[in-house]
Amino acid sequence: MTAHYHILGAKQFNRTELEELFDSAARMEDRETWNTDPRFAGKIMTTLFFESSTRTRLSFESAMSRLGGKVIGTENAAQFSSTIKGETLEDTIRIVSGYSDIIVLRHTDIGAAERAAKVADVPIINAGDGAGEHPTQALLDLYSIRKECGRIDGLTIAMIGDLTYGRTVHSLSYMLANFQNIKLLFVSPENVGIPSYVKHYLEEQGVAYSETENFEDALQSAEVLYQTRIQKERFPSIEEYRKAEGRYIINRDILSRMRKDSIILHPLPRAGEIAPEVDEDPRAAYFRQAQNGLYIRMALVEKCLTF
């Protein structure tokens, strides 16, 4: 089987690779170059999503189209694929590999992307695997931090909300270990704290972190507030969800107590944890962050298809 460049997890990237991707993403922001590269003419991307998505799926599909390729796929593969007939993920990937040049996979199971990569004849991009990882989201998060703050080294970054099931937090934490003098502040209810395996990795890499339930601890210390949704669909019971629901909400009052040089990020969608009144504040960077997803994913598709 031919070797391919897969995007499977955040730990696969070193700093040099990250900087190269960020430079490529910056190049992709030049709209005059869209649809002009003959390397992608006739190339086909399959988006295979077993879990719901708006931003990730559409930004990947837009990325492929902007590069000059084509897209096929399904937004509800759990219902509208042969999986409902009992077909394994591995067999699905073997078949779809014959139809396309690259596969973007979102799945409910942790480790699904790695399973797919073992049998695929084309590059696999992990677009989220259950409560595991979301490496392309972490890449656009880092790219956004660099654009908004002018640097990544030396920042204090507060991650707020559902840190147990929040795969974006896991991937971003892993990637931040590539940078110098980073401080991470994990702010969460007790029942959705950052997992021990993430903390263990940070300790191995020498990354400073602390944990708290107090939102106020982040407001004056962090240059980046990375707010996340309390993911009702991932909790084992409604009782556990209610313990965490509505604990941390960024509103006008919170804005008044934040650092003037800080930014607010959110992987989206939001579900009440950032009030609409915050949107007009220049520190609210989450819509700019979502737009950056297009550029990062264009850079990733380019890398995978030209490896």
Rank of each mutant, 00 (worst) to 15 (best):
N126T: 08
K118F: 10
G166V: 03
I160D: 08
L176S: 04
H134P: 00
L172Y: 05
K183L: 07
N191G: 11
V104K: 00
I160W: 09
S188Q: 13
L163R: 13
Y165D: 01
Y99L: 13
D129T: 04
C149F: 08
T88M: 09
I110S: 09
A113T: 05
A120N: 04
P123S: 07
I103S: 05
L155F: 13
A127N: 06
S97I: 01
R115D: 09
P123W: 06
D109Y: 14
R151Q: 15
L89N: 13
V122Q: 05
G111N: 11
A117L: 07
T92G: 12
D141V: 00
F186G: 09
L105F: 08
N191C: 13
F186E: 02
L176V: 05
A120H: 08
L176F: 08
G111T: 09
I182H: 14
P135Y: 04
V122P: 01
I182P: 04
M175I: 12
T168D: 01
L172A: 03
N191T: 15
A127D: 06
R94F: 11
I182N: 12
E87G: 06
Y165S: 12
D121R: 14
A131C: 13
N191F: 12
G132V: 01
A120E: 02
R106Y: 06
D141R: 00
T88G: 12
Y165K: 09
L172D: 00
S171E: 00
A116K: 04
V192I: 15
I103G: 04
H107G: 08
K183Q: 15
F179Q: 09
S100I: 07
P189M: 15
L139N: 02
L89E: 14
P135L: 00
A113G: 05
D141A: 02
R146G: 08
E190C: 10
I93L: 08
G130T: 12
A113S: 12
Y143S: 01
G111F: 10
D153F: 05
K85S: 07
D101F: 01
I182K: 15
T156R: 13
A117I: 11
G128N: 04
D91Y: 04
T108C: 10
A138V: 00
A131R: 10
H107Q: 10
L105Y: 05
V169L: 00
S144L: 04
P135R: 13
P189L: 14
T92Y: 10
K118S: 11
H107S: 08
I160G: 05
D129V: 02
D91W: 03
A158E: 11
R146D: 15
R151D: 06
Q180C: 09
Q137I: 01
D121N: 13
K85G: 07
R106T: 07
M175C: 02
F179I: 10
R115A: 10
M159P: 02
E87A: 05
E87S: 03
T88C: 09
A131V: 06
V169S: 02
A112F: 13
T92L: 12
I95F: 07
E87V: 11
R167P: 02
L142K: 03
I152H: 05
Y165G: 08
T108F: 15
T136W: 02
A127Y: 07
I152C: 06
A117K: 12
E190N: 14
G132C: 08
C149T: 12
R167D: 02
G166W: 06
T92C: 12
R115Q: 15
K85E: 06
V169T: 07
E87C: 07
D162A: 07
G86D: 11
